[in-house]
Each structure stands twice: as C-alpha cells, then as structure tokens.
C-alpha cells in the first residue's frame, strides 16, 4: 500500500513538473479543418510521409474550427470546403498571419431521388429553389406543386445539417442566400443517413457530395440540373471537369500560412507534392480533379506567394483561372 502511494505520488509530481516545459517544438506539418477535404489531404499526407519520411498530421474540426486554429498559428495548412469568411480574415490579420488560397479539387453537389421516382429526371435551379426556400415551408408538400406535370406524390426532403459546407454552398447557389432554407426537412450531418432516407422514400429528394452518390448508385438516381447555358446535365467526372455541371460544382481549398510556405522547407515540399498528386489522389477518394493546365496555373500562382482570397464577395461557379485572377487582383 505504502509503495503504491509513493509510486503514484512520484508519477503525478513528475507529470506536473514536465507539463510546464511541454512546448511542442517539432518539424511536423500540422493540418486541420474540413471533413469534406480530409480524405484528399489524408491520401496526400499518407503518400508524402511514405516517400519523404516527413511527419504530417491531419485533424478534422470542420472548416470553421480549422480556420480558428490556423489563424492562431497552431496549424500551417487548413482544409476548407468553402472560401475563408471576412471575420476569419480579420482574425488572421490580427494575429499577423497571411494566407495563400489554393483550390485543390471540385466536389459536385448531387441532387438525388428515389429509384421508383420516374418523373423527376431533370430539374431547374428555379424548381429546386421552389422546393427548398424558406417560403416553401409547410406549403410545398407535393411534387405536383414544384412542376404541374408531376404527380401528386408527397415531397420529402433530405439534406445536410446547418454546420456543413455543402449546406452553405447549396443555399448560396440555389436559394441565393447563405443558410436560408425551409425548416421542415430531415437534416443529418451523416450523409449515409440521407442515402437511407431518400432510398426508402418514393417521394424523397435530397442532396450531398458526388462521392456518396457514386457509392450508392444502385439505391438512388441523380437528377440532371439545368446549367447556365440551358442544358440539363448529370454530374460526372467529365461534366464537372469541363465546367458544364453548374451551378452545383464547388471548389475545395487548402489555405497555407504564407510565411511558412515561403520559409519552411517541409511545408514547401508538402505543397509541391500535394499539387503534383492532387489529380490522381482526389479522383481516388471520390472527388473531381482540375485539369493538368489548371494545376499548373495553381502551382505558378502559389510560387508567387500571393496572399489573399478570390472571394471577397461571395461568388458561385468560378473557373479555376477566374479564382486565381480574382485572388491576384484582390491584393
């Protein structure tokens, strides 16, 4: 008994003594942020560590949580499924942290319906707005109210919860205002729940990332969406890459701490590696890569170490070149 007490006492004292000197000083490349971007960064980090032996860690605390750590200097790279917001830019500035914005791949928000749904093969953004906008709450409850020629089947909506970047982008691009949506739909942060919901409900209508649709093609159908040129387009690797699937293609980003990107050799190596392999690795985990020339343009942009964002004002459906140009002109 006496021995045990003595031992425990020693251990606790030592822990407390050591705790004061616990300042992490290592050459680890620290990354945090969005869960949507996580699979791509994880894949890159995995390969990078195998090839170079440089240690990389990736956390998942959401785009907002990631920026908090990034603007405090806890991380050098932040995964983001949406552009940085003005208040986050302010926080970074106050802490003296400049950032470089790098688009890395596309995610396509896919509108899905039940397999037994034989009417809604195509929809326009206006029809989607009619079904999802706040005004529709408890008024638009049947498919026939969305388009006259559709049957009198109850309309059941499934979508990601309010913390998700997918939700932000969907409301911005379809409803026209960030986070504006009707309250009476089934929301879940777990996309697998949405898959379950729509696949079990004849009148179900839902949306989530393309990767989830590709894994559940046997349970769900994707709806073709009318793009800016008036064509109805189904999301796929091809249609997202050539830009014809819009407005529901959204870019994913990583944000770099500019001074680390300039001076830390490990971070430099990591970004070079990231941009070199993003095309292959993002496809592998279910996202849509940019074209080779676009990655080359991004690499050039990053090499100039231009800081700032292309999204001082919210913008939908920008091409990679437009993003880079805007980012440079927003200096």
């Amino acid at each position: 008994m006496k021995e045990i007490t003595k031992f425990i006492f020693t251990v606790v004292t030592t822990i407390l003594l050591f705790s004061n000197s616990a300042i992490a000083a290592t050459d680890i490349v620290k990354i945090d942020g969005s869960s949507t971007v996580y699979p791509i960064t994880e894949a890159v980090a995995e390969e990078f560590q195998i090839e170079t032996g440089i240690k990389v860690t990736v956390g998942v605390s959401g785009t907002g949580g990631g920026f908090k750590k990034f603007c405090r200097g806890d991380t050098v790279i932040s995964n983001a499924s949406r552009p940085i917001k003005p208040n986050e830019i302010k926080k970074c500035k106050e802490a003296g942290i400049d950032f470089i914005e790098i688009p890395i791949a596309f995610d396509a928000i896919t509108i899905v319906v039940n397999k037994r749904n034989d009417w809604a093969k195509e929809m326009t953004p206006a029809e989607l707005k009619k079904a999802w906008e706040p005004l529709a709450q408890s008024k638009i409850t049947k498919w026939s109210q969305v388009r006259d020629s559709w049957p009198d089947v109850p309309l059941k909506l499934y979508g990601p919860g309010a913390d998700s970047g997918t939700f932000d982008y969907f409301t911005e691009s379809i409803v026209g205002e960030s986070k504006a949506i009707r309250g009476d739909f089934t929301a879940s942060e777990d996309d697998n729940v949405l898959v379950q919901g729509v696949s079990g409900d004849k009148g179900g209508l839902g949306y989530f990332g393309l990767a989830y649709f590709n894994e559940n093609k046997n349970k769900l159908d994707a709806v073709a969406i009318k793009n800016g040129k008036g064509k109805f387009i189904v999301p796929s690797l091809k249609t997202v890459m050539d830009g014809s699937y819009n407005p529901l293609s959204r870019p994913l980003f990583i944000y770099l701490n500019a001074s680390k990107a300039a001076f830390d050799p490990n971070v430099k190596k990591f970004i070079d590696f990231y941009l070199k392999h993003a095309a292959v690795l993002s496809t592998e985990v279910g996202y849509i890569p940019f074209s080779k020339s676009e990655y080359a343009a991004i690499t050039n942009h990053y090499k100039t170490l231009k800081t700032g964002t292309a999204f001082k004002k919210p913008a939908i459906g920008l091409s990679v070149q437009q993003m880079l140009d805007l980012s440079s002109s927003n200096q």
């Binding site: 960064t41 560590q49 990389v56 990736v58």
Partner: peptide, 10 residues
C-alpha cells in the same frame, strides 16, 4: 476533438 485530437497521424 475540442482540444484538438488528430484524425490522421501515421
């Protein structure tokens, strides 16, 4: 998660 546990650490 709040205190900053990682997800990928190899």
């Amino acid at each position: 998660i709040t205190i900053g546990a990682l997800t990928f650490i190899a």
